[in-house]
Design a protein around this nucleic acid. Structure first.
Lengths: 143, 143
DNA sequence: CAAGATTGAGTCGTCAATCTTA
DNA sequence: TAAGATTGACGACTCAATCTTG
């Protein structure tokens, strides 16, 4: 591949990703800030709806200190709560409240529908699977 | 496509994009902050190495006010300069200095080499072109 | 009045230092 | 000593208000 083709192709990845992400972000923003959704989404997918602060911070690519403040705001909004871990008293669990479960499930429902509209509709099933295959290879090859 | 497959496939896009972007970002960060590179890159690709503040702000997805301050820092570092536009005295051009040209060309050279290592090496030429095709369709279909 | 650019206030993130517990 | 969580100082962005020019 020529340098220019490489730049062009990766440029298309950046543009498409940015465009789709911006649309998804605008949708989520109507109910909550994007980082909140990232957090609540991982909690609702976890058995027991709870995770240690530090684990969750790493999953959403936040610093330890940054996540403490993010958690403060989410807790303040009533979507999550801190719970002391008795097995290891250094760790604090963060858990979903009923209000948190409710809002993230509603947001996820809209999110999925929009994703279908933005990705499946224009590409078709085969291309979506092809895209997944390529991206898996890319992810697994990136240290 | 099932919802679960859609979520999985888009999740792969997010993970791969994040992984590659993080690696590219770490590389650029050794010479300058990522937003600086975005700015200098667009300037060096423009005939005359200059663009109006507002146009450039939109290209790099910055607010007007945010870009003013970003430009302040880049100018302070000696990589760019403000130049008054005589045709329309409301606009300010931002132009590359020789130091700006030099650093962005060096950074771009490393950037391209790394992109080749991170994308072309694992995927191969055909998949890279296939990826470009898919992403172009996605971009053009996203309002 | 609209458009380009700047400023000040406020928000949200990182980093380094600190406290508690293993 | 190290690991988890928090805090305060700082940096960089957005937004709304302002100034200048068309």
């Amino acid at each position: 591949v020529l340098d220019s083709d490489l730049i062009t192709n990766w440029g298309l990845v950046v543009e498409a990703y940015s465009a789709v992400t911006r649309r998804l972000g605008d949708d989520i923003a109507q109910s909550m800030p994007m980082p909140w959704f990232e957090v609540l989404l991982r909690l609702v997918r976890t058995p027991g709806h709870r995770l240690p602060m530090t684990s969750l911070a790493q999953e959403v690519s936040f610093s330890s200190g940054g996540f403490t403040k993010l958690a403060d705001r989410i807790v303040e909004a009533g979507y999550a709560e801190r719970v002391a871990c008795e097995a290891d008293r250094r760790v604090t669990w963060i858990t979903l409240t009923p209000a948190g479960v409710e809002i993230v499930e509603a947001a996820l429902k809209r999110h999925t529908a929009l994703l279908r509209e933005l990705v499946v509709a224009p590409l078709g099933d085969d291309k979506v699977n092809e895209l997944g295959t390529i991206m898996r290879a890319l992810r697994d090859a990136t240290p």
